[in-house]
């Protein structure tokens, strides 16, 4: 696999890419506590719109890069118990903190003091995980460890098929959000009958 720049150059390119990411997070509105929390309360769909669009646009591009030999995948192993427990904790933490790790870092720069305090909490959380790592690795990460599995592997539906399905789902979901939901009124999507 050859890449257009050396590993050393790539490392430094991470800075402008991070800057772009920070700009996009802030301008997307997700460096804002209310926007994140209200996604989970179905009062604001900004997070879903950004993530779902990024997954489809990013996924189709990376698939093309991969199939033409210009990129390789980096699949995280499906240790199902660890992923499920970790994600469940993550959801609790995200609603309490009001940010995720990336948007929390972006929010610190906007003047959010509680984002800074939560950032310190994240550092403590990192320490706690490192201290419990050996135990978690031995008792949790080995349960239902399926390896670096992808959806096409387990379903038989090819990559492009998945992107057709995801694009169709996104189309319907986005259409519902845009036609049935009034952002300012905070009307839940399912009762959006008052237009």
């Amino acid at each position: 696999m050859t890449f257009p720049v050396s590993a050393e150059t790539a490392r430094w390119l991470a800075i402008p890419m991070g800057i772009l990411f920070g700009v996009l997070l802030h301008r997307g509105g997700v460096a804002n506590y209310n926007v994140i929390v209200n996604q989970f309360r179905f009062k604001d769909f900004t997070v879903l719109k950004i993530m779902f669009t990024a997954i489809i646009v990013g996924g189709i591009g990376v698939l093309l890069l991969k199939s033409t030999g210009h990129a390789q995948y980096h699949i995280k192993p499906a240790n199902m118990l660890g992923v499920a427990l970790g994600a469940a904790l993550f959801g609790v933490g995200m609603v309490l903190y009001g940010y995720c790790p990336g948007t929390g870092v972006a929010a610190m720069a906007t003047g959010s003091l509680h984002a800074v305090v939560g950032f310190l909490g994240m550092l403590v959380g990192g320490v706690l995980y490192a201290l419990s790592f050996a135990w978690v690795e031995a008792h949790i990460q080995k349960v239902a460890a399926l390896g670096k599995v992808r959806l096409p592997d387990i379903t038989g539906v090819p990559d492009w098929g998945w992107f057709v399905i995801l694009t169709a789902i996104a189309g319907v979901v986005f259409w519902l959000i845009e036609t049935r939901f009034t952002p300012d009124g905070g009307t839940p999507i399912l009762t959006g009958n008052n237009r």
């Binding site: 970790g86 904790l89 993550f90 609790v92 933490g93 995200m94 609603v95 309490l96 903190y97 009001g98 995720c100 790790p101 929390g104 509680h114 984002a115 305090v117 939560g118 950032f119 310190l120 909490g121 994240m122 550092l123 403590v124 959380g125 990192g126 706690l128 995980y129």
Partner: peptide, 10 residues
């Protein structure tokens, strides 16, 4: 926020 930060990173 602090507790949330601890939980989310763990």
């Amino acid at each position: 926020a602090f507790l949330g930060g601890v939980i989310i990173m763990f």
